[in-house]
């Protein structure tokens, strides 16, 4: 059976989000995968050109509409559904964008959604984490009808470049709702690498004690070219903004190096770092659960250790 896959691109209007390239790799695990990526945008050309270069993509569709200036699930879902008929699988990334959108798409298609796909075993069989990653569940869809899925991006490498897929304009006749309106987005602009795709991540917890304390981490991160993450406790306390949160309710990441500083290692935090290649933990409590998963552990006071590491680099 040929798998015909539709992937919904994630982008900010000009730049393609790396999550899309990871969805492409996931889709390539389906037999005889024929991959179409759709770009919903006000003006899609720039993003479509980036998608066309991803190896494995067979075709890029653009859905241009002024209402697509900001990604709103209630607006995008009916457009996606309108072009979904020929496909066996409809995939999006398991990011806040994809999770918001894909379940709405699944509902309109009356199709089951497999959330957080971490491995594909067959066109109908998928593996996914449940219970905050404390169990892995294999599920089987009936094979009748479509399967909708969100792709756990930390489980897949980004597809390589070098492709040159054709780009086609798609036209759909659907009424778009006006009941949902974009007001604003506040995103801290940072020159640091993106947390979700960075090779190195330095993360801080409640122990940093203040937003001031986090500066210690920014300084170390900049020396290492690393992104900065945070535990929920650090975000709740206002030491770090919410987009830095790592874990079950934050970002799920898979860096080469993850350094957890003053983080106890609650299961909800560990969910976010299970796929990190090397985990380093710095904590003054030798019994802290983070040491159970750390490849390299250092017991001690972070306020001494972190500046010392920086001096040694």
């Amino acid at each position: 059976m040929t798998a015909k896959i539709l992937i919904i691109a994630e982008h900010d209007g000009s730049k393609l989000n790396p999550s899309t390239a990871r969805c492409v790799t996931c889709a390539c695990a389906l037999p005889e995968a024929q991959i179409t990526v759709v770009v919903c945008a006000a003006e899609a050309a720039a993003v479509a050109a980036q998608v066309a270069q991803l190896a494995g993509v067979g075709r890029v569709l653009t859905l241009e509409h002024p209402a697509n200036a900001h990604a709103l699930a209630a607006v995008q879902a009916p457009q996606v559904v309108a072009i979904a008929a020929p496909f066996t699988h409809v995939l999006g990334p398991s990011t806040t964008f994809g999770k918001d959108l894909m379940a709405r798409v699944a509902a309109l298609l009356d199709a089951p959604q497999v959330s957080d796909i971490m491995a594909i075993e067959s066109p109908t069989r998928f593996r996914r984490p449940v219970y905050a990653g404390n169990a892995i569940l294999t599920v089987e869809a009936s094979g009748e009808g479509k399967v909708v899925g969100t792709v756990r991006t930390a489980s897949f490498e980004a597809a390589a470049g070098g492709g040159s897929a054709p780009i086609e304009k798609a036209a759909v006749e659907v009424a778009l709702p006006t009941h949902t309106r974009f007001v604003s987005v506040s995103a801290a602009r940072s020159d640091r690498p993106d947390l979700q795709s960075a090779a190195r991540v330095i993360s801080g917890g409640r122990a940093l004690g203040s937003a001031e304390g986090f500066k210690l981490l920014y300084s170390l991160a900049d020396k290492l070219g690393a992104a900065v993450g945070a535990s929920r406790a650090a975000v709740d306390a206002g030491y770090a903004p919410n987009e830095m949160q790592v874990g079950q309710t934050g970002k799920i990441i898979a860096p080469e190096l993850y350094v957890a500083i003053g983080i106890s290692g609650a299961i909800q935090h560990l969910t976010g770092i299970k796929d990190a290649r090397t985990i380093v933990a710095i904590n003054k409590d030798s019994e802290a659960p983070i040491f159970e998963v750390a490849d390299i552990g250092l017991v001690g006071d972070l306020f001494q250790i972190v500046p010392e590491i920086e001096r040694l680099l």
Binding site: D12, L72, T95, T96, F97, T180, R181, F182, V183, S184, V185, S186, A187, A188, Q196, P241, N242, E243, K251
Partner: peptide, 8 residues
Amino acid sequence: VDAGLETL
């Protein structure tokens, strides 16, 4: 949201 805070 992943980028920060969005208002709708």
